[in-house]
């Protein structure tokens, strides 16, 4: 899927550039973006390392376990087949909580670790695609659900938006908060319903494996 999307971006970009006569801009954009990606990575390396360091302390101190317990009813509802003591749970919980609080930089490291642990879970389950390196891997149900939940947006207070609104002279920058919470709930509930529906459809099939 991502192959097609990326291919679409490059091919359509070049074709549109030809059509609109923006070839010079396209050339510059390609080169500048590659550099921009590296400067983003440099910022990211520092911040992600910082948060992963903090996360390691939180984990060894048992803080992650406490947080996980707090939201575990919700997580067990969404991920009924992850064993209760699996490390994937802690990372998923950290990611979800950081998302809700709007700690963007803290979500990514926890999310990436969660994905790695979900891959380990597949390995433990004996999924042949995950036992060998270099095989084409199909996402597990848990991975799909975790990503859909993430993409549905969980952030409660849109801090950045409030800041931009006040910068642009809004009479009431925080007026966005209530509808933003409502819209976020709607998108998340839609995501949860979709996942539960998909999960139900697949239960029988996987049991026969």
């Amino acid at each position: 899927m991502l192959n097609y999307i990326w291919g679409f971006m490059i091919l359509i970009g070049v074709l549109c550039g030809v059509a609109t006569g923006n070839m010079e801009a396209v050339t510059n954009a390609a080169i500048d973006s590659a550099g921009e990606a590296i400067s983003l990575c440099i910022t990211m390396v520092g911040v992600v390392a910082l948060w992963m360091g903090m996360m390691q302390i939180a984990q060894e101190a048992g803080l992650v376990d406490r947080l996980t317990r707090g939201i575990s009813p919700f997580l067990h509802f969404l991920f009924p087949r992850i064993p209760r003591d699996h490390p994937a749970f802690g990372y998923i919980a950290t990611n979800v909580i950081a998302n809700i609080l709007g700690l963007g930089w803290a979500c990514t490291p926890a999310g990436l670790k969660a994905m790695e642990e979900l891959a380990n879970l597949e390995r433990e389950r004996g999924n042949p695609q995950y036992l060998q390196e270099g095989k084409e891997r199909v996402a597990s149900r848990e991975m799909c659900i975790f990503l859909i939940l993430n993409i549905s947006s969980l952030e409660l207070i849109p801090v950045n938006m409030i800041a931009y609104r006040s910068q642009y002279g809004s009479a009431n920058p925080a007026r966005v908060v209530a509808p933003a919470i409502a819209a976020t709930l709607i998108s998340t509930i839609t995501a949860v319903l979709f996942c539960k529906w998909k999960d139900r459809g697949m239960r029988g099939r996987d049991a026969n494996k």
């Binding site: 899927m1 990326w6 999310g111 979900l118 891997r137 199909v138 991975m143 799909c144 947006s153 996942c195």
Partner: peptide, 29 residues
């Protein structure tokens, strides 16, 4: 962006129903 970065961490290439669910949630929002 989220899909490519996260799936890369698990080295997954086939993303099953993720795209459909993600687009549905985005559309609902």
């Amino acid at each position: 962006y989220t899909m490519s970065v996260y799936f890369l961490a698990a080295k997954v290439t086939k993303t099953r129903f993720t795209m459909a669910g993600a687009l549905l949630a985005t559309f609902a929002g």
